[in-house]
Design a protein around this nucleic acid. Structure first.
Ligand SMILES: [Zn+2]
Ligand SMILES: [Zn+2]
Ligand SMILES: [Zn+2]
Ligand SMILES: [Zn+2]
Lengths: 138, 138
DNA sequence: AGATCGATGAGAACGCTTGTCAACTCGCCG
DNA sequence: CGGCGAGTTGACAAGCGTTCTCATCGATCT
């Protein structure tokens, strides 16, 4: 406390760059579509960069908390992950091939906020995903 | 087959009116909020209308397939159910007590359709749910 | 009533996710 | 450079929601 230097990074959990974290991060960067934790775990094994399943889950959670990946639930309830741009957005996903397009819409953001306020709800979050068949798959 | 009377109900699976199915249906009608299958199972027990957990799941699936209940996933991935109106709508759900408001918005419907068309996607569906804290829970 | 076939319930099985904990690593300091 | 300490890892077990299995029950039709 009396120390003048404010070291932030070291000493703070979840900040150490390890082989495993880099590997997970790289795999995420190499895909455009949403993938489950288990798929990522398998892919890592195939690449020869074996990483424990628990570590994959932990790393994905870190990345999600840091806002570096988007998490959403497949219709079966499985969590799927994808590296996304930092700003708030939603997704247009192809049901057949998984291709994903990030979409934005100030109008929708305003609408949800308005609806929530109108009913006195606070601390709002929302999910909005669009599913369809992409041109290539039609 | 050569019989002229077209009997639909008998012989078709998932159509027999039993005590258990009526019980589940009634419990659903007595609540305004989304509830998990397990909560419904517990509630049935408390009412003295004990129903097996597997049967609760089966019945909820039947009702969902028939469009009589809406199913959505809580943020933790659990499936939650609620008897809803027949027309297309979305939900404003309290994270803490489960209180639910059905909301509609032609603007949003138009927006999603527009985005999808813009990217050449066809056969569109969408999910849109708003989560927050209701006035009573603030 | 008897036959038929869907429906039920108890428990096992399943798949995804999280917890446990000893061994390990990275970064730091002497 | 070697040791120290806190964060990190991995194998495994445990947790949880959901589905499956199968013997038994019961609704409907004859
Ligand atoms: Zn496609
Ligand atoms: Zn949004
Ligand atoms: Zn509430
Ligand atoms: Zn809609």
């Amino acid at each position: 406390m009396t120390d003048s230097t404010a070291r932030v990074s070291p000493g703070v959990p979840g900040t150490r760059p390890t082989r495993q974290r880099r590997a997970v991060s790289e795999v995420l960067s190499s895909f455009e579509d949403f993938r489950s934790a288990q798929e990522i775990h398998t892919l890592l094994g195939q690449r020869g960069e074996s990483v424990g399943l628990a570590t994959v889950y932990r790393t994905l959670q870190l990345l999600a908390d840091a806002g570096e990946v988007d998490v959403l639930r497949s219709e079966e309830g499985e969590a799927i992950y994808r590296r996304c741009s930092a700003t708030h957005h939603h997704h247009l996903v192809c049901r057949s091939c998984g291709a994903t397009v990030e979409v934005e819409g100030p109008a929708v953001e305003r609408w949800t906020a308005g609806i929530a306020a109108e009913h006195g709800f606070s601390d709002i979050s929302h999910t909005l995903e669009i599913f369809g068949t992409c041109p290539a798959c039609s």
